[in-house]
Design a protein around this nucleic acid. Structure first.
Lengths: 163, 163
DNA sequence: GTAATCGGTACCGATTTGGTACTGTTTTAC
DNA sequence: GTAAAACAGTACCAAATCGGTACCGATTAC
């Protein structure tokens, strides 16, 4: 599946929300409520993003988080790297000498090509693009679900999305 | 890390090996030995690849495996899809209605853009390219494949989106 | 008919992931 | 200057996933 972790998934949703409402500041509970995600998880992720420099944090009573840069200047690659570490599809792509098969593995070097291609693809998508409604023609699989429920208010639904 | 599983990693190594020695057939123990991978794991992966149609299998005493198609006609995307299922970075990209947040999630639809970008990048790399020693200049950070070699293959480029 | 090889499935331990809790530290408000 | 609100750090746990193994049946060469 080429998975990213749910943490990263959440993180991108949160950043997208922040980008779409850049005018106001957010603290963790507010963001969790509006994104319909569990509060502790949101807090955890926001801390990480702040430490990685993608968010500015402000302590104290009226504290909260805000984007450290313009959404146009934050790429998916950056976000994923911040939340999951360097973008590499396999373990042997990182440093050298870690893989016991290295002297033998015929395709080791070529993994760089793949990882690099993926990284490039992710660098080409900015947070600003993610927070826009939709490029329209790219949503190939039918635009189902236009009018959703009316309970778009707060009260942290959260609903763990296993199912 | 945007991880693929080790199983997929092994699978690609095995396919690469087969592509580089397409003249002769291989059975599981032979391949395991030459690739320096555990035999049971190799057997398991080869079974999977055969069922998915990437390998032809031959039972019986002199049985074994061989590539079902030419290495030039097998893309990384196909291999990864065979071993891990559809290429999608998150759970909500697949079918509809799976994600409880779907009516609310602001970036759900845009996930398609990301997954699609990654898929395109992987479709642009063939098994034949992986089994070549190394195009040398591709290892660096330059955009992949300036001209040279078997250019103009029909498939996609990396980073197809804007940017 | 026998041996070699693939095919399928079930199983287990270890790791990772998702999620929670608790204890600071900083800043605003009164 | 004290209290409350919010971020910061870390430790912890349960569940899912992953890597790996074992077993038995089906098929084919000789």
């Amino acid at each position: 599946m080429i998975r990213i972790t749910r943490q990263t998934d959440y993180g991108i949703v949160l950043l997208t929300h922040l980008a779409a409402h850049a005018d106001r500041p957010y603290n963790a509970p507010e963001l969790a409520s509006e994104a319909h995600l569990p509060v502790p998880m949101v807090a955890k992720i926001l801390k990480l993003l702040a430490r990685e420099g993608l968010l500015d944090s402000h302590r104290g009573v009226k504290g909260g988080y805000s984007l450290a840069r313009l959404p146009e200047d934050i790429s998916m690659a950056e976000i994923i790297t911040a939340l999951e570490g360097p973008i590499a599809l396999t373990e042997c792509v990182g440093e050298s000498g870690l893989c016991a098969h290295e002297p033998v593995c015929p395709s080791r070097s070529n993994w760089h090509v793949i990882s690099h291609a993926v990284r490039r693809a992710l660098e080409g998508i900015t947070l600003a693009e993610m927070s826009q409604p939709l490029p329209a023609q790219l949503v190939t699989l039918g635009g189902r679900r236009a009018a959703a429920t009316t309970d778009a208010n707060g009260t942290a639904q959260a609903a763990p999305l296993n199912a």
